[in-house]
Simulated scan of single mutants.
Amino acid sequence: MKQVKSRIWIEQEGEAFLGFGRVTLLKKVAETRSISAAAKAIGMSYKKAWNLINTMNTSSSQPLVITNTGGKDGGGTFITDYGHKMITEFETLNNACEAFLNEKFNTIIELDN
Rank of each mutant, 00 (worst) to 15 (best):
N54A: 10
V29K: 06
P63F: 11
D73P: 00
T55K: 12
T24F: 04
V29F: 02
N113C: 12
R22M: 08
F105A: 02
F90M: 02
L52N: 09
E11Q: 04
S6A: 09
M56A: 10
M1Q: 14
T58K: 14
E13P: 02
V29T: 05
L52E: 06
G43H: 02
N57R: 10
A49V: 09
E103M: 08
M44L: 11
G76M: 04
G76A: 11
A96W: 04
F20A: 07
G19Y: 05
A39M: 03
S59I: 09
D81T: 07
T58P: 03
S6G: 12
D112C: 14
F17H: 03
S36Q: 09
N57L: 15
N102F: 09
I8S: 08
G21T: 05
T80R: 07
P63S: 11
G70P: 02
N57G: 08
Y46F: 12
A37P: 01
V65H: 04
G43Q: 03
A96H: 08
S60G: 04
I109V: 14
E15V: 01
S61M: 12
N113F: 11
A49D: 01
G83H: 08
I10R: 01
M44S: 03
F105D: 00
I10Y: 05
E15Q: 03
S59M: 15
F78K: 10
K104H: 05
T77V: 15
K27H: 02
W50I: 08
E91N: 12
E98Q: 10
L25M: 04
L64E: 11
A38W: 01
L52Y: 07
N51P: 05
S34C: 05
E110M: 07
